[in-house]
Design a protein around this nucleic acid. Structure first.
Length: 807
DNA sequence: ATAATAGTTCTTTTT
DNA sequence: GAACTATTAT
């Protein structure tokens, strides 16, 4: 079987002179480390598990471990494969290793699972029947594809939805079960199972035909490649002598299998053949002719496993010692990040997860400030609290870039953004409305993908009529039918449009498109990606159409496209020599966390998931409510609550100095407003660690039952009793003062701007009618007015948001 | 073929 | 409230 060797396995100064551990580790590399960290850097053996609690300096340990291997000449850079969770983490690690060993870091593979596998697959594509320029389909792409297949099979009548089918396919792929494996074990007597099998089969075929892989394929296909072609696997097994994996608790089965393949010894016959074929100048074989398995180092913390939903299997780390019998386990518990108060909270919360190995974070830093709690009336009110506290922190010398606001769901960012804009707090949301997910950007990528991969029918379908060329569904179907008749990709059909007997206008439109794509493909051979993009954008008329529409939104879209061009240029500057396919790959594998840049003076708002691995002086954990954290979707899943608790734990442990927890008593979702209850997790933080601030209505903001013995009690604190009246919802204040009313009817929260009220003013309320202002408590944007209404008595109203007008 | 409108359903987290 | 679908008018 033909295969293409990886870049030279033996560097010029390579392992021919392989001296093993010639000199000991430079003492400077372990300076300042505690005994466990030091041991983790120095240990040598087949397998090492570093159980690294939050903030225990694992990145430092990992980089020093690599630096140690290099500086002692135990390994050449090219023999090291380090897997990180994000591209950004990879870049950082490369940089830090480079600093430690001084520039010798070239040739190391430090990347994410996906990047490493794509690199291998592009090089070995032919072996497994792909073409090197394959497209990587993102979630939106696979969704569109699945939708079409469901429609074709009328499978929606059986209750199949795109997301349901996709998540099941994803789970199967993560378990390395391809269509045939599934067919073998499925109970096909069940018509639903049979239908799903057909969906899975068609989905797989469609990807094959389009020369495309989805995210899960990237890992799974690499495993299949290694298993089916031992001589190809041996290439990498021989090359990578030290494999290091970060965030091991979040690996799924496919990734686990991949690691197992990589650290396998190479059989004697394969080894001999390989070394002959690559012309190795030094043999790595042992006396028995085998090449021994690479050494494996994994770092992780089962308490921070938060990706079960995408197949992460906590057992990978829990059962590491069983999987690798000769392994060493080192526990890092000393925390160098947070105050004792924060750690006490974290320890107390995570202790509620049973069946975990006991681990207790400690620090020699002092207790630090109390955790601050706040209960707002609404997401807006909560956001206002956050904004106010951020300003206060700034006065205390904690800059914007050292502050992070965490949310459970992306929808929660909305009120935060609105308030931050109003209050002038600079913020950024990495991966928010993803730049690359905007329609016009996806259109542009449709052109690029088609040029890079002519088999990609999905991409072609996307751009067929964008901008409008008069190619509607009917024409598309005709082209499609023709393609199927001849068994050729859609792209080839475009060139034969003359045979289809379409109208002259249509024929010209299709022929022009075909010519445009062909010309783009010619350019892509030797021109930089940005140039190809510019050409396609200009000649397709994509930008032109947006510019001419007159709609300011379209103007913004045109600017986005220009932004894309500069990004393509920038990419080429960062990666000289890079091709169009490289650019497309980097975009496809670009993660939210990769766009974090903490130097530029903005507060960062992000989900708890993207927060993993990061740290900030001050952290706001928002929306700590039932239904949100734990999320309602997780409550009925096995292990769901435990995972949500870990998410909370991850959030808490990001904070170095100051931690804020906040919630609201009502939250907008679905387009209307629902009552929210404090999260059960709040009650798991020892009460004396939290100092609850006054809420907007002047009442105590502390959920009363928090700190009580039972978590469910916390969720039922009597302060949170509600009465719902027509069109508005009311909170019973605990004090015997009048009830506080807020919010308007269903729909958006109103904003009265700078409305000023004084005692004696008369106001009209949307629900309560006219009333007299009898008291005003100035409190900036949370000024409260007490109003005497004729019909309903005295009410306390938040001036800014109440549905009132001054008469 | 397209544009506009009204009605529907659905939302966790992400490589 | 957004995103998608179906329906209708141009």
């Amino acid at each position: 079987m033909a295969f293409i060797p990886e870049i030279p396995l033996v560097p010029e100064w390579g392992p021919d002179s392989f001296p093993g551990a010639g000199r000991g580790i430079d003492p400077a590399l372990v300076e300042g480390l505690n005994p466990q960290q030091r041991q983790a850097v120095e240990y040598r053996g087949q397998a090492l598990l570093i159980v690294a609690g939050a903030g225990s300096g694992k990145t430092s340990v990992l980089t020093r471990r690599i630096a140690g291997l290099l500086s002692t000449r135990e390994a050449w850079p090219s023999q090291i494969l380090a897997i990180t969770f994000t591209n950004k983490a990879a870049a950082e690690m490369r940089e830090r290793v480079g600093q430690l060993v001084g520039g010798e870091a070239e040739g190391m593979w430090i990347s994410t699972f996906h990047s490493a596998c794509v690199r291998i697959l592009r090089r070995q594509a032919e072996v497994v029947g792909w073409k090197s320029g394959f497209t990587i389909y993102d979630t939106a792409d696979t969704r569109a594809l699945t939708k079409r297949i469901i429609k074709e099979l009328d499978a929606d009548t059986l209750g199949f939805t795109p997301s349901g089918v996709l998540s099941r396919i994803s789970r199967l792929k993560n378990e390395l079960k391809d269509v045939d494996a599934f067919a073998r074990e499925a109970s096909l007597g069940d018509p639903k199972e049979a239908a799903f099998l057909e969906l899975y089969r068609r989905y797989t075929q469609a990807l094959r035909r389009a020369n495309a892989l989805d995210f899960d394929d990237i890992i799974a296909e690499t495993v299949y490649l290694f298993r089916a072609f031992p001589e190809v696997a041996a290439l990498y097994q021989r090359r990578f002598r030290h494999v290091l994996v970060d965030e091991y608790q979040d690996t799924n089965h496919a990734q686990y299998a991949l690691i197992r393949e990589l650290v396998k010894p190479v059989d004697a016959d394969v080894a001999a053949d390989l070394e002959r074929r690559i012309g190795a100048r030094a043999s790595l074989t042992e006396a028995d002719g085998r090449i021994p398995g690479a050494s494996l180092t994994v770092v992780g913390d089962s308490d921070q496993s938060i990706y079960a939903f995408r197949g992460a299997d906590i057992r990978n780390i829990v059962e590491f010692e069983r999987d690798f019998p000769d392994s060493e386990v080192i526990l890092l518990e000393q925390n160098y990040r947070s105050t004792q108060t924060i750690l006490d909270a974290a320890n107390a919360v995570i202790a509620n997860n049973f069946d975990r190995k006991a681990k207790n974070l400690f620090t020699v830093a002092g207790a630090g400030a109390s955790i601050v709690g706040y209960t707002g009336y609404s997401g807006h009110d909560e956001a206002q609290f956050v904004a106010d506290e951020i300003e206060a922190l700034r006065r205390d010398g904690i800059g914007y870039n050292q502050v992070a606001v965490f949310v459970r769901t992306n929808a929660q960012t909305r009120p935060l953004e609105e308030v931050f804009i109003r209050e002038g707090v600079p913020y950024r949301i990495p991966g928010g409305t993803r730049f690359y997910e905007r329609a016009e950007i996806k259109d542009a990528f449709g052109y690029l993908a088609q040029v890079a991969n002519p088999d990609d029918d999905l991409a072609l379908r996307r751009i067929l009529n964008t901008p409008k060329r008069g190619i509607g569904p009917a024409t598309e179907a005709a082209l499609q039918a023709h393609a199927e008749r001849l068994g050729m990709p859609l792209r080839d059909v475009l060139r034969e449009v003359d045979d289809l007997g379409l109208g002259p206008k249509l024929t010209t439109a299709v022929r022009d498109l075909a010519a445009l794509l062909d010309e783009g493909a010619r350019l892509a051979v030797d021109r930089p990606p940005a140039e190809v993009l510019t050409f396609l954008l200009d000649k397709s008329g994509l930008v032109e159409t947006l510019r001419r529409s007159g709609d300011p939104q379209d103007e913004a879209r045109a600017e986005n496209l220009e932004e894309l061009v500069s990004q393509a240029k920038e990419f080429r500057v960062q990666n000289p020599e890079s091709t169009l396919v490289d650019f497309l790959t980097s975009v496809a594998l670009f993660a939210a966390a990769d766009e974090l840049e903490d130097a530029d003076g903005t507060v960062t708002i992000m989900t708890l998931h993207t927060a993993k691995g990061l740290e900030y002086d001050a952290v706001f954990l928002t929306g700590i409510e039932e239904e949100l954290l734990p999320h309602r979707m997780s409550v009925n899943e096995p292990g769901g609550i435990a995972e949500e608790r870990r998410l909370f734990y991850v959030g808490i442990t990001r904070a170095k100095q100051r931690l804020f927890v906040s919630l609201a008593t009502s939250r907008a979702s679905f387009g209307d407003i629902n009552v929210a209850m404090p999260s059960r997790f709040l009650g798991e933080i020892p009460a004396q660690l939290i100092e609850w601030r006054e809420g907007a209505g002047g009442g105590m903001s502390r959920p009363r039952a928090i700190g009580a013995r039972s978590a469910s009690g916390a969720a039922r604190g009597e302060r949170f009793s509600y009465s719902t009246s027509f069109g508005s919802r009311a909170v019973e204040a605990s004090a015997p003062r009048p009830k506080t009313e807020w919010t308007s009817a269903v729909g958006q929260l109103r904003d009265n701007g700078d409305l000023q009220l004084a005692v004696g003013d008369r106001v009209r309320h949307a629900d309560f009618g006219d009333g007299d202002v009898v008291a005003v408590t100035p409190n900036g944007p949370r000024t409260v007015a007490e109003v005497q209404f004729g019909s309903v008595g005295r009410k306390r109203l938040l001036v800014k948001v109440a549905p009132i007008e001054k008469l």
